[in-house]
């Protein structure tokens, strides 16, 4: 059991390492992801201008920015393997579950890197007041986990389709709707300064969403991956 777990982490780590090396040679995904997020943020900032926003508006804007930039940035994880023809080498080298885990870790790191830039920028441009910063971090983290877990398997599905362009947001929106509603609500609670106890049901929904989606993805990924 333990050795199997260790070998899984080692192999998934190797895949993650490979993806990172490939990514930092071109920085294409990270750059486009980041620029998309910044552009969306600036549009929001321009549109809002000098007006005062409620916490619920801030929470909605934050998650709209995260959702759409994630759709633009995370779609490429499998498409690029398909385009370069490396997908067959990947198929030969390891099992589907490990591929899913490796890609999941890569997407998660990518998303967290972008959040690390975009959230301070958001505060810089729109200066919302934060009542409970720690809760905000936890909500953002749990939300990103669920978002990445779902997007990873959906982007694998999209990479097999003929029309790859706009399919991911279409597929992801209904699946992610419970996550988005809960994240927006959790972010609003954090901005208004509620405690962890008062936001516990949001946190529970977010973490169970993540666990359920990852488990189902691991079970079903085999069917997506085989030809």
């Amino acid at each position: 059991m333990v050795t199997r777990f260790l070998s899984w982490t080692r192999q998934a780590g190797a895949l993650l390492n490979k993806d990172f090396k490939a990514e930092f040679r071109t920085k294409y995904a990270l750059n486009s992801f980041l620029m998309f997020a910044v552009t969306t943020l600036v549009i929001v900032s321009f549109a809002v201008g000098p007006y005062y926003l409620d916490p619920v508006m801030h929470a909605s804007f934050i998650w709209i920015i995260i959702f759409f930039s994630a759709m633009a940035g995370l779609a490429r994880a499998f498409i690029k393997e398909q385009e370069r023809g490396t997908v067959y080498a990947l198929k030969l080298s390891t099992t589907p579950e490990i591929i899913y885990l490796g890609k999941f870790c890569f997407n998660l790191l990518l998303l967290l890197l972008v959040l690390l830039v975009i959230i301070p920028f958001y505060f810089f441009f729109l200066s919302p007041s934060v009542g409970n910063p720690l809760l905000l971090v936890v909500v953002l983290l749990l939300g990103s986990l669920g978002l990445t877990g779902t997007t990873t398997i959906l982007s694998a599905i999209v990479s097999k389709a003929n029309v790859k362009g706009n399919l991911l947001p279409v597929l992801a929106f209904p699946v992610l709707l419970p996550l988005l509603i809960t994240s927006i609500n959790g972010t609003r609670l954090a901005l208004e300064g509620y405690t962890f106890g008062e936001a516990s049901s949001e946190l529970r929904v977010l973490s169970s969403f993540f666990v359920i989606m990852t488990t189902v993805s691991l079970l079903l990924f085999n069917y997506v991956w085989e030809d």
Partner: peptide
């Protein structure tokens, strides 16, 4: 793929 999506 569509079966997988329907389940998810």
């Amino acid at each position: 793929l569509s079966s997988v999506y329907a389940i998810i």
